Simulated assay, not measured.
Amino acid sequence: MSEAFYTDKAKVRAAFERAAHSYDGAAVLQREVSDRMAERLDVIKNAPLMILDAGSGTGYGAAELRRRYPAARVIELDIAASMLKASKAKQQEGAGFFGRLMGRAQPWQACADIEALPLADASVDMVWSNLAIQWLNEPDGVFAEFRRVLKPDGLLMFSTLGPDTLFELRAAFAGQDSATHVNHFIDMHDLGDVLVRNGFALPVMDMEKIVLTYGRVRDVMQDLKSIGAHNVTAGRKAGLTGKHFWQRVEAAYEAYRRDGSLPATYEVVYGHAWRGEPKAKAGHLPDGRQVIEFKKS
C-alpha cells in the first residue's frame, strides 16, 4: 500500500470519538455485516468461555456474542473511549434497576489499540473483529497480536473491507486533484497469506459485495462521517475544498445513478482461522528446545 494511503491512527481515534453519538443511527453496514458474521458461527463447533471483541464500537456485536454464548465473558475493546461508554450506557439501560444493582450491567471493557492488546498470552478462546482491521496499514502486527492472545486451537473470526469498496466515490474524486480522498484496502488473498505467515491454521476467506443506496452524494459523505469512516489518509488534502470542487465530484458521481439512487458499494471480506502451533525444526521440540540423542556405543 502506498504511504500516501496510510491512515493516521490518531485521527482514526479522534474520528471515532466524535462519531459515538451518531454511530448507531448510521451504522447500517456494520450491523448487517455483524449479523452475517454471526451466521457463520452456526456451522463452527466452538464453545468459547472468554471472547475478545476487537474493535467493538458501541457494542452491537458484543451483545450478539453474549446472547449466543451466555456462559462466556465478552471483553469489549475499542480505540475510542466514547464508543465504549455508549455501549455501557445501552447495557445499563437494558439491565434495569435490579440488574444494575446486581452488577450485571458492568461490561468488561478496555480502551486500547488492537495492535497492542492489553491481554495476557493465550488468554482468550475467540477473537471476534467486525470491520476494524481495515483502519490499519499493515495487517501482520494485528494478526500476530490476535494469535498471541488466543489459546491453542482458539478461533479468530473477522471481517474487513476489500479494495473495491467505495469505488464509485474514488472514481468521482479521481482527476480532481492529487490528494487522496478515499481509503485503500487490502485484497482478500493477501490477507489469507498474512494469516498463514502469522501462524494461523485452516484459514477460510470469502467475499461479497453489499450496495447501499442514497439520494445524494452528500448523503454518502454524511454517513461516512457519522460512523467515523471519513478520509484519514496521510495524503489527504489539508484545508477545505471549494464549492466548484464538490460540484465536479458530484457531477462525476451522478454517472453511477440507477433507478433514481446513487450506489455506494462495499466489498466485504470475511475470514476465520484457528491458532496454529508452530512447526518444530528438525531436532527441536515445538517450544524451541534442542533434542540431543545419546547413543549407546
Rank of each mutant, 00 (worst) to 15 (best):
V211Q: 14
K85E: 15
C111G: 03
H189F: 06
L131V: 06
F98M: 13
D113F: 12
E93S: 10
V194T: 06
N46V: 13
D190A: 14
I210G: 00
L29N: 02
R68A: 04
F5K: 08
T160D: 05
D24Q: 04
L52W: 05
V149K: 02
P163I: 03
F97P: 01
I75Q: 08
A10G: 13
V291T: 14
T265I: 05
G235D: 06
K90C: 04
S226D: 15
H272V: 00
T58G: 02
Y270S: 07
K11N: 09
R197T: 06
D190N: 11
M205A: 10
D177Y: 07
S178V: 09
F5A: 11
P107W: 00
Y23M: 01
A26N: 05
S56I: 04
E64V: 09
V269W: 06
M221N: 03
Y266S: 01
Y253E: 02
I75T: 13
L119F: 15
L84K: 06
G288M: 05
D35S: 09
A144H: 10
L202Y: 11
G141P: 03
L285H: 05
A171G: 08
N46F: 13
M50T: 14
D125H: 04
A95H: 02
Q92M: 15
P286H: 06
K90G: 03
G175T: 00
L155G: 07
Y270P: 02
D223R: 12
D187S: 00
E250K: 01
R218D: 12
A63C: 13
P263M: 11
K237I: 09
H184R: 15
D223A: 10
K279G: 14
I51V: 07
Y256R: 09
A252N: 15
R258K: 15
A252Q: 13
K225F: 01
E93Q: 15
P152N: 12
G215C: 11
L77I: 11
D223E: 15
D8R: 09
I75E: 09
M50K: 10
G96W: 10
L161V: 07
E254A: 12
V291P: 09
E145G: 09
R40E: 09
E208K: 11
E254L: 11
E3H: 13
A179R: 00
K85M: 13
H230Q: 14
S226I: 12
D219A: 10
D223F: 03
K90N: 12
S34D: 08
P263T: 13
P139Y: 04
L169N: 01
